[in-house]
Amino acid sequence: MEKFEKLTGVAAPLPLINVDTDMIIPKQFLKTIKRSGLGVNLFDEMRYDDNGNEKPDFVLNKPAYREAEILVAGDNFGCGSSREHAPWAIKDFGIKAIISTSFADIFFNNCFKNGILPIVLPKAQVDVLMKDAEKGANARITVDLEAQTVTSSDGEVFQFEVDPFRKHCLLNGLDDIGLTLEKAPAIQAFETRMTAERPWV
């Protein structure tokens, strides 16, 4: 997995609440058997009209935000289905950090598995960053995972919480499976115990 350390980039504002994974990547794109190439279909139904032409007023179609690397989003971002295609599409588009007041649980997990940092901040701070993002390409926001800070284009600094284990994995680009396999003896011991205690499983 790619490491995430520090990022300074353009942030795209998406103030809608309850953005679900069907909006992020509609189901017709779930038929792929690969992880890559989904970026062009990110937010497909909001981004393109029925003929496949870009809708000019959708945020990621505006010249200022085409290269956005951060998304500032409304409450409860990523609700709905468990599809990891949602973070794959976000990553493939080039977005590496998402800031919101809250995220849906599975989506939040999926982000970390793909080197995307979801950041939860209080409403007032998200509002500041949303306004900042609305200024366009000149307003660059900085996310520093090591220091656990987000810095607005005006230099205002907000501290965020992150689970230490997840932070460690993201900073070092560690693969979960490899880490878990190091604990194979513990898993085996558990299985031996279970075969005796709950043989029907």
Partner: peptide, 14 residues
Amino acid sequence: GIGTSEVEHVLATQ
């Protein structure tokens, strides 16, 4: 529910 990376994790490690 889990994501696909976790599916892989469960397949590999249970």
